[in-house]
Design a protein around this nucleic acid. Structure first.
Lengths: 225, 225
DNA sequence: AGCAAACCTGAAAGGTGATTCATGTTACGG
DNA sequence: CCGTAACATGAATCACCTTTCAGGTTTGCT
């Protein structure tokens, strides 16, 4: 059975192991990640690992928990200073992409959780989605967001962020030298396109019209007299 | 080195192995999936595996390739009979969710490809996205879809389908008896909400206005005289 | 300084699983 | 119906990993 550290030294060692584990899981994946690699990364003896963790699965769960907490913090912190829903959305996504750029481990680790720790996977997604739902509900009361099921919208937003982040942050990141402070984020124009997409999806106003026949005059938008 | 079968018997055996591999990968994951489990699933001797595949990674790649081909077929087949973009979108997503419900292996296997076979992962996503892009471009020429970067929209759509499918098809599916013909799809109301979201995001028409203060009159939409 | 308690260590036990290969079986053209 | 190429098999080999543990080191308290 693993134990909590009881001195400053122990606390440091445990933290070193967690950090090394995040790096190793992210770079070679859960199964290729051996305890030996983790302890080497932490510059610690092999046996030391078992002083603080029950095994590979246990430390994996903690890494997921930790990443989840950090990404949610980054998002809510960024959104806090916004004065309306659109701003909050923009700030939240910006923070999410920045976090992704700085911690590619998030994606790479979460994806593996599917099999390694399904419970952790669900907790990760539902926690983030719950944040969205709360924000959307509040914005609905303001009339900033149309009448809709916030749960469905929240999962849709989550999906948009997830794949756009994967495509433009993770995939484009490769080959980039890890110069601190110079990490590539989502390009500005892609970000704007995405926000347009989201704003239109959430904006109050009339339902889009029946398909407009090519070349015809767009339907009147004015209300009845 | 593996070889292609040269007789009917060999072809059958190889197919049995592929099918068993899909099942095993989906149910226990890549790393827990041993060659022994696969050959047992295929009712074939252990050594037989190496007649047709170079190893675990090789058969995994083929399984991904196969699933990708099948899901794209399902989607384009369904979309073919649509007469406009909205219908095509609906039909495509329906088909995607149905496929997901019938082959949960798709998700579960793709997620692992991140580490097992990154190339296969990218190919999977980009192929599907390319289909979306083509459809969106065509619809833009018709005026059915607003002027926008189809690539960004395509990834956004992909993300929406991915997470909504995960949440309502995969997660809700658990505990469901696998009665053929009675697989749970995305609930109707969730599907409608999602389509609303998408239609508004893609619809032509004025940009959503600056945040409307609660209760105020929406800004005029008419153009200057 | 002296002494617990906490911490650290790496060799070794005990498993697991991928892959090979020598040998046996089946299919089929001539 | 014979011979040969294709196919099938699973015991054995090899490589690697998790986890334990007996014994050393450091820390912090008095």
């Amino acid at each position: 059975m693993s134990a909590q550290p009881r001195t400053a030294r122990g606390t440091r060692t445990r933290a070193k192991l967690l950090e090394a584990a995040e790096t190793v899981f992210a770079s070679v994946g859960y199964h290729e990640a051996s305890i030996v690699k983790i302890t080497e990364g932490a510059a610690v003896g092999l046996g030391t690992f078992y002083l603080y963790f029950d095994g590979k699965q246990a430390i994996f769960d903690e890494v997921v928990e930790d990443l989840n907490r950090r990404v949610r913090h980054a998002m809510t912190d960024a959104a806090r200073s916004a004065t309306n829903r659109i701003e909050a959305e923009r700030a939240g996504f910006r923070a999410f992409f920045r976090f992704t750029a700085e911690h590619p481990a998030l994606y790479r680790i979460i994806r593996q959780a599917e099999f390694v720790s399904p419970g952790a996977l669900r907790l990760h997604y539902t926690r983030i989605v719950d944040g969205y739902i709360a924000g959307l509900k509040a914005a609905q009361l303001n009339g900033e967001v149309r009448d809709m099921d916030p749960t469905v919208a929240a999962w849709a937003l989550m999906g948009i962020g997830e794949l756009i982040g994967m495509r433009w942050v993770l995939w484009d990141e490769e080959g980039t030298e890890p110069v601190p402070g110079a990490r590539p984020d989502v390009p500005e124009d892609v970000f704007e396109e995405m926000m347009q997409f989201i704003e239109r999806a959430l904006a109050p106003g009339a339902t889009p019209h029946a398909p407009t026949p090519a070349g015809s005059i767009p339907p009147q938008e004015g209300k009845a007299p």
